[in-house]
């Protein structure tokens, strides 16, 4: 099945991806961000808060946004 996966860490680009049926949010996270900790990110499915056990559905939009995004100053 196809999902819209948006990783706001870094570039923040939206990709349509193919995943296996019955994939959970936690499994998708582990596939896409193997070095990351889920607790360090805001994870939304179809713009709604979700849980790791939620089974993804075709056409779902999954957004991952890091909790910490460093601002700067304009010198």
């Amino acid at each position: 099945m196809r999902l819209l996966f948006i990783n706001n860490d870094g570039g923040g680009f939206a990709d349509e991806i193919d995943v296996t049926d019955g994939l959970t949010v936690r499994q998708l996270f582990e596939q896409r961000l193997p070095q990351g900790q889920p607790g360090d990110y805001l994870i939304r499915v179809n713009r709604q808060p979700t849980t790791g056990d939620t089974v993804l559905q075709p056409g779902d939009r999954v957004t991952i946004t890091p909790l910490k995004i460093e601002g700067a100053f304009q010198g």
Binding site: N8, D9, G10, T63, T65, P66
Partner: peptide, 27 residues
């Protein structure tokens, strides 16, 4: 000064993802 959030914000606006845009700003 959005620093590291700049690219994500640009990408969000480019596709009209307003919720992502404001969530990135909040973070």
């Amino acid at each position: 000064c959005v620093g590291d959030g700049w690219l994500g914000l640009e990408a969000a606006l480019a596709t009209g993802r307003l919720s992502d845009y404001f969530v990135i700003l909040r973070q």
